[in-house]
């Protein structure tokens, strides 16, 4: 009986104290609004540490902290209902711009943009109609152009005339990488064969390195000697397999050349960091608009990685040739097929 009374008394004391403390906290937090811009990023499921997509977005946010002096916050959703909750929390807490990372967040960003019309939103990798959502920018990339360039490099490096592609989810966004890659490879060597595999049909396909490794090994056994992956951390398995079998892999999104030096031919750079940082800059300079922004070769949003880790793999004639192709794309002499545009046209 004494125990029970003690328990009730302790519980009451804690409740009273936390209420008082909560009130005190609510009072002092109101004085915190300064001229600093507050920017939040909601990462895609999988979170930080993927050495690719999410890490790249976070790097852009950190650069904005350094260069623009913003205050940052970032959320890592643990399940599919959480992106929407994070967006709401940041909108309610008065963040100026909230960036959603990844096409899976499209519905959630649209919904948040509708219920918080006074906040600015941006979504990476899927288009949102700015007429319907004037407070929402979509940040898209010309992945087909970068994939074309690494495809050309793959065909130049391949001795067997067979190159491989490992995709994450079997969806149009990933087909866009594959189509550009195959066009680049065939531009260099019209006889080049492109063998394609996908890790699966659900979002898990983007973080399954074990499957990535198994698929890469199958492709190698079929005579492929260079594999380009567009599969998030599934690709870590592809790169691992390339190193173990003495073949070549091509990284994606971030510069992955360092992961297995000598076995990563190059990486198709998708500068999510540039898109994030530039969008934050637009907000700071009061010129943010709800519109579809495309980051391509011209804007420096897409490229291929050259550094000390792959200098021995890409000879200077190879690099000159790929630079010439890049110039032709920029000049409009080569038009790489944008699979998503073809899809929309249908």
């Amino acid at each position: 009986m004494l125990m029970k009374r003690l328990l009730v008394a302790t519980a009451a004391a804690i409740a009273l104290w936390s209420w008082w403390d909560y009130r005190a906290g609510a009072a002092d937090s109101s004085g915190l609004t300064g001229p600093r811009r507050r920017i939040a990023v909601v990462l895609s499921v999988g979170g930080l540490g993927d050495k690719s997509f999410n890490d790249s977005a976070y790097e852009g946010l950190l650069r904005a902290v350094r260069e623009l002096g913003i205050e940052e916050a970032h959320g890592e959703p643990a399940d599919i209902a959480e992106p929407a909750e994070f967006l709401d929390v940041y909108a309610e807490e008065g963040y100026d711009l909230i960036i959603g990372v990844g096409f899976l967040m499209k519905d959630a960003v649209e919904k948040a943009a509708r219920s918080h019309p006074d906040r600015k939103f941006a979504l990476i990798d899927a288009p949102i109609d700015p007429r319907e959502y004037p407070n929402c920018a979509s940040l898209l990339f010309s992945e087909h152009e970068g994939s074309f360039l690494v495809g050309a490099l793959a065909a130049m490096a391949s001795k067997s005339g067979r190159v491989g592609f490992v995709g994450g989810m079997d969806i149009p966004l990933i087909h866009k990488f594959k189509v550009g890659y195959a066009e680049g490879a065939r531009h260099v060597n019209p006889e080049c064969e492109v063998l394609v595999r996908y890790a699966g049909a659900g979002p898990d396909a983007f973080h399954d390195p074990v499957k990535g490794k198994a698929m890469a090994e199958t492709l190698f056994s079929q005579g492929v000697d260079v594999i380009y992956h567009a599969s998030g951390s599934t690709g870590n398995g592809v790169i691992q397999a390339a190193a173990e079998h003495g073949k070549l892999a091509i990284g994606v999104d971030a510069n992955q050349n360092y992961m297995k030096p000598g076995h990563v031919l190059t990486s198709m750079l998708k500068r999510v960091d540039v898109a994030v940082c530039e969008t934050i800059r637009a907000v700071c300079e009061e010129r943010f608009q709800g519109r579809v922004c495309v980051f391509g070769l011209k804007e420096g949003g897409i490229g291929y990685a050259m550094d000390e880790h792959n200098r021995a793999l890409v000879t200077s004639p190879m690099q000159e040739r790929v630079e010439a192709l890049k110039a032709k794309i920029l000049a409009g002499e080569i038009r790489v097929t944008d699979y998503l545009e073809v899809q929309r046209g249908k």
Partner: peptide
């Protein structure tokens, strides 16, 4: 769960 999300969003304490 709701609290953890808020904590993750706004503080430095991992969820």
């Amino acid at each position: 769960k709701g609290g953890a999300l808020q904590m993750d969003a706004l503080t430095n304490v991992p969820r």
